[in-house]
Nucleic acid binder design. Structure first.
Lengths: 163, 163
DNA sequence: ACTGATATAGTCAAAGATAGTCAGAAAGCG
DNA sequence: CGCTTTCTGACTATCTTTGACTATATCAGT
């Protein structure tokens, strides 16, 4: 398994217990995993970004720390943010997958729905010879349109999952 | 026998055993067959495409992999019919909507899932300035990829869907 | 307060590890 | 032959890991 994945799991285990946030020492964690301290920053940047639903707070110097906080937001707030601000006119597959995964974790969609959405914006779905630029524009439109549908379903069904 | 055929057989042997999916390293497989790594991509593209009933997932970088998911047996009638005959390389919104409606009526998808699929192939999702021809090609690919995903879900969830 | 030492964390570019793409060569076939 | 399929290699894209350098905070001595 990748080092990054191990560190990610470790942090998520800490978060899973009860607290919605966890505080740690960058150097201690790096020591524990036997890696460069900057590796921790890499994991935070690629797995605990706002897109992943986390906010990072930190302090340097003596007694310094890194705090990882899981963001809490209502479903419609999240959806509106994604549609109106986060997703612009263009988005890559990786980013889109992250956002969809986040919706799943917040239980705004079922895993089947998330998989269908992933399929819709996948490279396989867009494997026709057009420029990447266009593909990403299609991805953005498609994703936003699907999210609008989810938002409407959410309103009509009071935010509960369907079955 | 052709190299491509050998690689195809090899992968199908792996898939035949018990697991419906297999994960491999492109370079290792190429090494094993003594060929260029890109040969593996050729085999995947020509023998494990969505039209053949497979989903490919992959990751680059350290710890990268290629995962091949078999969704339908070769020759499985209904799904292959939908994927290859009815959808083809291109499909309009109206016809796609009718097809999705049928999936709903046959209870292969929930109404929420059907709505998300409709959103994904809607005119709104594709409201960027590209030729209709391209839009319909994208629709076809997108729909096929989503269909495969649904088929995979039904299989994995003990679904009683059989063509 | 100021200053320098110490203790942290952050940034960024480079190297390493994979996989993807595509044009053209090679091989097979009618 | 001429067309199609297969195969390769060079180039590209993406993901991970590290290390050198930077930035900031605390503390101890003055």
């Amino acid at each position: 398994m990748r080092l990054s994945d191990s560190i990610e799991s470790f942090i998520k285990t800490l978060l899973a217990q009860d607290e919605p946030e966890v505080e740690l020492k960058r150097n201690e964690l790096a020591e524990y995993f036997g890696c460069a301290p900057s590796q921790i920053n890499y994991v935070l940047a690629t797995r605990f970004s706002p897109d992943h639903g986390y906010i990072i707070e930190s302090r340097r110097g003596g007694g310094g720390y890194i705090r990882i906080v899981r963001v809490v937001q209502t479903g419609s707030q999240r959806l509106m943010y994604l549609i109106n601000e986060r997703i612009g006119d263009t988005i890559g597959e990786g980013e889109a997958v992250r956002l969809i995964q986040q919706l799943l974790e917040q239980q705004l969609v079922t895993s089947n729905e998330a998989e269908i959405m992933r399929a819709a914006i996948s490279a396989q779905a867009l494997s026709i010879p057009i420029p990447d630029q266009i593909k990403n524009a299609v991805r953005a439109r498609t994703l936003k349109t699907m999210l609008l549908t989810v938002a409407r379903q959410n309103r009509e069904q009071g935010g509960a999952n369907n079955g």
